[in-house]
Design a binder for these strands. Structure first.
Length: 130
DNA sequence: GCATTGACGAAGG
DNA sequence: CCCTTCGCCAATG
């Protein structure tokens, strides 16, 4: 154990479809919940961390159901690989995603996160699957 | 049950 | 550099 690592909690069923335990969606939510306030990650990074590098789209789809989760999922901290708020239209209001980020000291300009590289948080480097 | 649609991303032209 | 295609796969028509 060379560096600091966190554990991904295996949460009880919280899937919209009432699926069992550790489904892909649930794992996505678990990872998203570990994103530190003020940091952001990408759909692809989460997918890669979960061993499904080519399923970034599914991560995006999973986020679509984030709002209905009992335990909150900070969906505003997940953006596309260019640091753009590609999912903002899916929030309650077109400006909510940006507003939530603003509250976390993450600035956005023209739908793009300022200093994205600096804010980027890579689950593959910070998490360990328990 | 086939076709289309994506909060994606890499590759090819 | 921009546009298209393709892989991925759940949801929707």
């Amino acid at each position: 154990m060379a560096k600091t690592k966190h554990i991904i909690p295996k949460l009880p069923s919280i899937l919209p479809s009432g699926s069992r335990e550790t489904s892909f969606f649930e794992q996505v939510y678990a990872v998203a919940r570990q994103i530190p306030k003020g940091r952001v990650t990408t759909y692809g990074a989460i997918a890669a961390f979960l061993g499904a590098k080519k399923s970034a789209r599914m991560v995006g789809w999973a986020m679509n159901g984030a709002h209905s989760q009992i335990i909150p999922v900070p969906a505003q901290r997940v953006v596309n690989r260019n640091g753009m708020l590609s999912g903002k239209a899916n929030f309650a209001t077109p400006t909510l995603m940006e507003e939530l980020l603003a509250q976390e000291e993450v600035r956005v300009e023209k739908d793009a996160i300022i200093d994205f590289h600096q804010k980027f948080w890579d689950p593959a480097k910070e998490l360990t699957i328990d």
